[in-house]
Design a protein around this nucleic acid. Sequence first.
DNA 1: CCAGGGCGTTTCATGGGTAAAACGCGCGCT
DNA 2: AGCGCGCGTTTTACCCATGAAACGCCCTGG
Lengths: 248, 248
Amino acid sequence: MSDKDPYSVPGLVRGLTLLQTFTPQRPEQTMAQLAQTLGITRSAVFRTVHTLVQEGFLLPVRDGNHFRLGPAVLRVSYGYLASRELLEVAQKPLEALRDAQDWSGHLGVLDGRHILYLIRLPASDGLSSLVHVGSRLPATMTAMGRVLLSRKTEPQIRRLLEGQPKAATEKALAAWRKDSASPSVIHNGSFETGLCSVAAPIHDMSGEVVAAISATKQTDTVPASVEREVLKTAYAISRAMGWNAPAP
Amino acid sequence: MSDKDPYSVPGLVRGLTLLQTFTPQRPEQTMAQLAQTLGITRSAVFRTVHTLVQEGFLLPVRDGNHFRLGPAVLRVSYGYLASRELLEVAQKPLEALRDAQDWSGHLGVLDGRHILYLIRLPASDGLSSLVHVGSRLPATMTAMGRVLLSRKTEPQIRRLLEGQPKAATEKALAAWRKDSASPSVIHNGSFETGLCSVAAPIHDMSGEVVAAISATKQTDTVPASVEREVLKTAYAISRAMGWNAPAP
DNA sequence: CCAGGGCGTTTCATGGGTAAAACGCGCGCT
DNA sequence: AGCGCGCGTTTTACCCATGAAACGCCCTGG
């Protein structure tokens, strides 16, 4: 399906199609079977299978002439499931957080020296959220960014910020030293005065920080109750993902 | 990793590698980011991404310049998980069946007009199992084959058997008519006289028959208790897979 | 024992995918 | 506005992945 497309890569299409011919009903196939099933030459099957075996997507079994799917196929689906699941799973706890405190809720990840917003939940006032999904802001100037940076090492921070004005780097490192000590980060809006945010990190099962959430409102102090709720929500999201995050 | 291999397919390797760069920490990427991450030209990324989008493995999001993994990535892992899981899950119930009755246990799938053995559990006598894992026997001459054929339609059977001697086809169709009516199939050894088997199908969640199990022994009558155990085991395997098979 | 066929592998000329360069658009900065 | 840069897209000459054919091996049957 779909030829005469000048930009398609036949080799890739064949490999992906070939992988999809493996089903529970047909878990092992020989090259000849694959060639017949796909209606392509045995040469193409040979090279494709050879490549897939080297990548671990196929495993030779039995006499070496039969092949079955290898564990590597899970590598591609992992990224999808994990990222999808995080956004879906995080949605409800974040909504609960917003409704309980009427603060805007966000979820973001670190991309280089920027924070990337993936979920945006404006509070009822509609004012305390100036970003959109997909927005990028300098990490050092947001609560989520700071809490994500605070979980990196100092050399990583320096590498990330190199090329920046020296004053900005030193200021970021000062904040980094302070943020590293606390489980959450409170940040007073760098873009709009009076806008205040509190952020907490989300850990995966290996302890890696994969994302952060934050609550934002037009205020100048963050009640301890809100900070506690943010930490609890971050923990709830980790738990809902099946990850063993440290308890708040 | 791995060049100067005369049989590798660069386009395929690139596509698979590209898919693996999508992680929970980096769920969306632009072509330029991908080119930099992979260290390949933007042209290659453009063609690869274009192909992956057409196949549904990537989805353009936001402004159309960012891409994230698409649901299609699950298609390749489904076959792996499903087939792997079936074999692992089926192992223990089959062992229990063998130990309870001391009959040889097998699990097989239909491949064309042949039955493919995927699990082989010899009984203590070691005699009543003449096949190996990976063995192929004509479906019409085994209990598992007959029970799998009996879940197909008559036109499917005719197509499967075309080219066979007419007498064999008619005989198979007669057996098919009888087998369709019962939940299990008892078959007296076509390869060794006195060897008797009883087989039951395993259904997946959609009611499709994905495999069959059988118990075999040197005898000429199948006790009702063994037939009941085989049906129960097949049902137990379906249930352990999370499938809603019809109760025995 | 030797044909015959099926299958995995290898070879080789060629056509198509590839890398490089150029294009054009949008954005940020002065 | 004007400029410059970054990025997605298009083009093009080239070279490498490709399809066809041949090879060698292991079966099976006569």
